[in-house]
Design a protein around this nucleic acid. Structure first.
Lengths: 177, 177
DNA sequence: CCGAGTTAGTTGAACTTTCTACGAACCCAT
DNA sequence: ATGGGTTCGTAGAAAGTTCAACTAACTCGG
């Protein structure tokens, strides 16, 4: 008896597991494989063309979306679902690279504000072209709009449910409370 | 002028970028946010319940799918789209944890075969329950089957296109050549 | 058979992320 | 005002990943 059969057969599992049927399994696998290849590709394209990772790019996008291109460290952490520590390290690197500058918050003396520099802005403008083109070429333009919308519905349902269980996740989805 | 406008406006970008329209942007964002929260959650659930990461779990699944629960190191690397080096390190840790044992290949004296131990098998059986339950609760059971199938179509199209551009990606999708 | 080129896997250093602990500042009920 | 609880951000160590260099073994045209 091989593993696939065992893993798919209720007979073997002690606390009866409700396995996926073949179609569900196939769709789930398509999602995992496609997502892995897609995110790897978008990350690689950004690194090659502009020397930043997808995560660093997303930090720049978030900064660009504020009026003064500035965010508190904690806001970056929450909106990216990263630890504060991770944001400290990442922003330190981006500061060393000249993309971000840090200064003490006026209103909260514990606080630190990360501000995108002009160099960061220029990099973002260039990187955004690469990124959006990649998203189109590797994702948006490949599917019928109805299918793409269905995917959006599914993924919104996923977020809704996870945010409901974990209120702190709400920070990832602005304009939705 | 703020970033969102600039990023969405063709006027500012030098090599005219074809930006996403509002609906596309919203669906793309739903996909990224949902995927981040979903994969983080599945990883966390496996770590908490069984002390392994989602990546380690997937290695065990791949091993379980072979007749003798054995794979060459390179096969693991290719099917996971990981570097050989990464697989060496990861399998070393899993070997230390008693989940995998390594032995020299009979047929190719360069080769190393990773074999799932009985302990690894037992861990997998338990972890599979956690994982499948999570996939159901946080994903499959949240959507209408038609939407889920549409998502599968989209993600298969994504893989098809990326594999076409990068033939080495084909290793991620067995039974599709 | 030979040797150039390729493939398998490991190693250790560099880099990134996670984990833990910490000090400083805020909040607020007393 | 003050002291307990919380939040902010950092720092360094531990854990994991990437990168570059390397050895060994396979392949195959000559």
């Amino acid at each position: 008896m091989n593993a696939v059969q065992v893993l798919e057969s209720p007979a073997m599992s002690a606390p009866e597991t409700h396995w996926l049927d073949d179609d569900q399994q196939s769709d789930w696998r398509a999602y995992i494989v496609g997502t892995t290849l897609l995110l790897d590709t978008l990350d690689r394209e950004l690194r090659q063309a502009h020397g930043i990772s997808l995560g660093e790019y997303e930090i720049l996008v978030r900064l660009s979306e504020t009026p003064d291109r500035t965010l508190r460290m904690a806001q970056i952490a929450e909106s990216m679902q990263h630890s504060r520590s991770r944001v400290t390290h990442t922003v330190s690197r981006m500061e060393k690279a000249g993309l971000i500058s840090r200064c003490a918050s006026e209103t909260d003396r514990r606080g630190v504000e990360a501000k995108m520099t002009d160099a960061g802005w220029e990099l973002l403008v260039a990187a955004a072209h690469t990124h959006v083109t990649g998203v189109r070429n590797h994702f948006v333009d490949l599917a019928r709009p109805e299918d793409f919308q269905a995917l959006g519905r599914v993924m919104n349902a996923v977020s809704d449910q996870l945010v409901e269980e974990n209120p702190e996740f709400a920070d990832m989805r602005p304009g939705r409370d």
